[in-house]
Amino acid sequence: MVEKQETAVLEPGMRGEGKIAQIIRDQFKLAVNKHMGDISPVHLNTDLYERHRSSQMLIEF
């Protein structure tokens, strides 16, 4: 049981127990690979906020 929990933390996408969870996981992977395989996910920009805040602080100063 302990080993299962540690694995879960290391592999967040592969959690779940039992045959049904495995079938759902396989179905989902198949669906995504078939229909969304060539699209890369979005990473949001965190730099603009820092730059905006720095400029605002300069104005206030």
Binding site: I24, Q27, A31, V32, H35, M36, S40, P41, V42
Partner: peptide, 27 residues
């Protein structure tokens, strides 16, 4: 499971057609 698990493939397929860039799920 037992209610909507059979719909995963079709929901992802239609979503991709509509412009979804990625997908996730929870049980």
């Amino acid at each position: 499971p037992g209610i909507n698990d059979h719909e995963v493939m079709e929901i992802v397929r239609i979503s991709a057609l509509m412009g979804a860039q990625s997908a996730g799920y929870t049980v």
